[in-house]
Amino acid sequence: MLVLEYKAVLKKTQVKAIDEAIRTSQFVRNKVLRYWMDNRGVGKKQLYQYNTQLRAEFEFVKNLNSHATHASVENVERAISRFRDNCKKNKPGSSGYPQFKKDARSVEYKTSGWKLHPTRRRITFLDKKGIGELKLLGKWDIHTYPIDLIKRVRIVRRADGYYVQLCVKAVSGTELRTSDEEIGLDVGLEHFYSDSNGHHQENPRFLRKAEKAIKHAQRRIYTKEKGKNNRRKARGRYARKHLRVSRQREEHAKRIARNVCKANAYVAYEDLNVKGLVRNRRLAKSINDVAWSAFRRWLEYFAIKFGTQVVAVPPHYTSQKCSNCGHIVKKGLSTRTHACKCGCVLQRDVNAAINILFKAKSTGGHPGSNAWGVGTSTLLGVTLVEQVATLSQESPGF
């Protein structure tokens, strides 16, 4: 599934109509979830029947396209299924009990409720919410895909405006690699990653660089009176600064992952539990800033595009073990040089990257999950499968 995203040009009345559609979608989801909580054992059929009751009872729900309310029910279904799967597998920690949505930011239509203009640069929403025709700005060429292949249309609200996403049932084309090398990657905080060839990729630290401006924008919010327009504008400026950092991380991870997969036929990396690592309150900000999860997600996507084999291996002892003789050389995090009695002296992360590659080749590791959410055999935190399953093709994320 490819996701082609466009910026929407809106009038003030359309902004209000979209916000109303998003609130209605959130209302349906929360009501259906409450119905499931109060009536344990109800199945999929009963959830959709309750959705029909809501459409009959509330006029504002009826005004939203029926397929859009069905999509809200599907969101509840996925949350329930995920919770049950976690319980069956006795997953440690939180089982992910379904939660109510407090600030939904999107509404999703299926194959009805919208119509594309013949130019494919405008889209009209046909339900009674009053959204009407939206002008689309973007580089994607939707002309190459038949209308029948567009299975979902989403309107997404972000800090810098509204976006329309067209979900197309198609497979992206493959590309040729530039070489067939093998490489091991050790991600870190000092460097974005160090590879088994001795190369260090710089850690851009986008949040750290923007932190001063973000804090200034945050302080400006509290100088404005509550409930006033100036406070709303200040909040918008603050949110846009965070959005920019988020996009910088995603684009950087995408670019680096593409280069790695294009230049190598075999890539080994660490199977890290990022969700567990960010519980360290001293390192949480730096770990989130380096975006290991996004990097792995894009590695697995471009592995399919370039025909690269990506393998995840357990990270245990990869930093302590000598890559030359196999002897365990204990060292703390502050020790950045690996020096073994066999005479092997390497930068700590390069030594770990070589061990990761050896480990993957000797044990096979775990084949990396792919960007379509099929055959995922390893998890990077509990949200990797969700992220992979909703990955957009080389475009900003959802």
Rank of each mutant, 00 (worst) to 15 (best):
E5Y: 00
D148W: 11
K7E: 15
W372Q: 09
E182S: 07
V32K: 05
G173S: 09
K151A: 11
N351L: 07
L2Y: 06
G332Y: 04
L391M: 14
H70I: 12
A352C: 10
F100D: 13
I354L: 07
R82P: 00
K89A: 15
K88N: 14
R219Q: 11
V311A: 00
H117G: 00
A170R: 06
Y222E: 13
R78A: 15
T376F: 03
I155N: 04
C261R: 01
C261V: 12
A284N: 12
R281Y: 12
L357H: 00
N229V: 01
H117A: 08
R121D: 03
S94I: 03
R34S: 14
Q14I: 06
V374K: 12
A268G: 02
R336K: 15
T223Q: 13
Q99P: 02
H70C: 07
L185G: 01
S196G: 10
D127E: 06
R232V: 10
R40M: 06
E57L: 08
V329R: 07
H327F: 08
I256W: 00
H191T: 02
A234H: 05
R120K: 14
T178N: 11
R281V: 12
L346G: 02
K101I: 13
K361N: 04
F27E: 05
I142L: 15
K341F: 08
A352M: 08
H67W: 13
L185C: 05
P315S: 07
E20T: 13
V385F: 03
I221D: 01
D127Q: 04
Y35V: 01
V73E: 04
A239D: 10
N51I: 02
Q201G: 00
D271A: 13
Y109C: 07
F398C: 03
T52C: 05
A56H: 08
H366Y: 10
H200Q: 10
R29K: 13
W292M: 11
A352I: 11
Y6F: 15
Y269E: 01
V28M: 04
I214L: 14
I354H: 01
K89F: 00
K359M: 11
G397H: 09
K212Y: 08
R82D: 13
R121C: 03
K262E: 13
L333P: 05
H327K: 14
R235D: 00
A104V: 05
N197E: 10
N280R: 07
R105P: 00
G397P: 02
E190I: 09
Y163T: 05
R296P: 02
V61M: 09
N90M: 05
K359H: 08
A104N: 14
R240V: 04
H327V: 14
T144G: 01
K209Y: 04
N63H: 03
S172Y: 07
K135F: 11
N324T: 10
D127L: 06
A239N: 12
K110F: 14
R281L: 12
G326M: 05
S196H: 08
V274C: 10
I155D: 03
A263Q: 12
L379T: 07
A79K: 01
